[in-house]
Design a protein around this nucleic acid. Sequence first.
RNA 1: GGUCUCGUAGCUCAGCUGGAUAGAGCAGCUGACUUCUAAUCAGCAGGCCGCAGGUUCGAAUCCUGCCGGGAUCACCA
Length: 613
Amino acid sequence: MDLQKSVIEALHTYFNDQRNDLDLTSMSGLSPTRKEFEGDYTLVVFPFLKWTGKSPEESAKMIGDYLVDSIDDIASFNVIKGFLNLELSTEFWTSALHKLLEKEKLDLAAKEEKILVEFSSPNTNKPLHLGHIRNILLGASTSSLLQAGGYQVINTQIINDRGIAVCKSMLAWQKFGNEATPSSSGQKGDHFVGHYYVLFENKFKEEYKEWQTKETASKVYQLQRKEGENEEAFFKRFKNEYFNTHSALGLEAKEMLQQWENNDTEVRALWSKMNQWVYDGFNSTYDKLGVYFDTLYYESDTYLLGKDMIQKGLAEKLFFQKDDGSTWIDLEDVGLDHKLVLRSDGTSVYMTQDIGTAELRFKDHGAKKMIYTVANEQDYHFKALFEICKKLNKPYAEGLYHLSYGMVDLPSGKMKSREGTVVDADDLIQEVIDEAKRNSLEREVQLEISEEAQNEIYRKVGLGALKYFILKINPKKRIVFDPKESVDMQGDTGPYIQNAYVRIKSVERRLKSQDLKAEDSYTAIEEVEKEILQLLLSYPLVLEEASSNYDPSEIAAYSYKLAKSYHKFYHDIRILKADTDAAKLFRLNLSSQVAKHLKHAFNILGIEMPEKM
RNA sequence: GGUCUCGUAGCUCAGCUGGAUAGAGCAGCUGACUUCUAAUCAGCAGGCCGCAGGUUCGAAUCCUGCCGGGAUCACCA
């Protein structure tokens, strides 16, 4: 069945007769013939000229003759310049469809290998926003993609549930919350807690502003200002230091953090309570997005990890200490800098924790491959982390991969919480669903189904639009997210592809009642049918390619191509009213295969298929 | 400044490890619903693939330099 393979084998035989030192592994293989030319698949013969010693045309002719002779599926060929266009036999197409029908699963062969995929990993002081949505969709779909690629996949995240930021919202709640709860205020837990984080920041800003009018402030300004720096610029720069040195609120927050680290019962209780509110909120968002985690890691459990490994490494001289007692690693030999791994007071930094967490995860799950879905602002950090793991000689060091993705910007520029331009995850999800509803109500088509079923469709279509819109873009590219475009439902969009599926389901329902006999075989295969079959046949390669690149956007692109071809087919070719039963059956089977592939592909993207829309 | 990354139609993006005249969608303009769901299809228009060199049968793709956007270079995470 694998035409690609038989052609390569045939070429091997053909050229080996003449040359023994031939290496065909580098040749490009077959590609679908472009529409403007005759033929089904094209072989570019330029690479062979050095073996044939003849002109491109002559060489192509020779090779074409040989292929027609030696491979039954190849019926004829034509040559244009160095391009050998092969035409396949009718039997090739019909048997290709038969073989697809016999295939039960579209997943690639199962591999023993385990992969751990980390994504989301939010802070617990504010709700999820558009940036998290990209992270979550990308991580979750990469996970599904690897599963389809045959790997055993474990979804995980590291939850940043501690630290000064978390204490800020705790403190604000304590001071100003009056014992309010999410349910008493009717707010989702993560939004509720986020509200107190913002409240803290505002109170802090007020405090800072007031302080600036005082004498101490002007003294500090006079003493520490840089050449030519005005007050405004200075105080902007000084904000962080103010928090640490002069601020009453800052002091309280830091004290709370200290108490937290000392396991203060009251603080810990408050912390657990508020974090639980946040988790309830996050979980509801995850549910809406249809993502799940197999195992969770909390920073509060892991932030002390890694120290021992640093100590051991220090003994082995992998790390070194500076005079102030801080511990570093020299990564200059791999093109990076010196990197801090322990503070001078012996406390750990982000890097320390990550080294420990990687080790812990390996012990827990034994996965030699781990993928970190984190935005590209941390490219440097992960490069350093991976190099350190290599130097520590970890068995998983080679299998670490940073799935780095571009930030999400708005047409108006960056999202800034200060300017209130952050797109909230829950709001966005609701908006796309509402838009799907509006859009559907404008149509004339009336589906005779319950309101509940109708709402399910709006949900699937709205989320389909959003997810596809984000996932179709190559991960490493920055996204300019135009909310208006994200709810588009025509053209290269999720709903367009869902619609192809829905059309097929409709055809299947109608043809089910017919008793089709297909004694005679279908021979007049249409161009567009071949095009669809070519796409279906290429699916395993696409899966392989996409999963080895950790790139769901390749799956999105494939889905679109397949749906587009199908829509054209659907428009141009009669299925129910085909001339013969054989034709009907062929087209029905072809359609069902398209549906199966689209559903599989969209499952990877985490997009559900409606049966009607 | 060093490192990384991106630059393709008005806008948003494809273009696989180099292959034929660079493709889609949106927006604009034309057409096609008594016929399997028009969330569809067909057509028109729109391009110095950032710029300049190089590698070769052949470059949007690989290499070098430059220009422009972004990220990063903390005892922050």
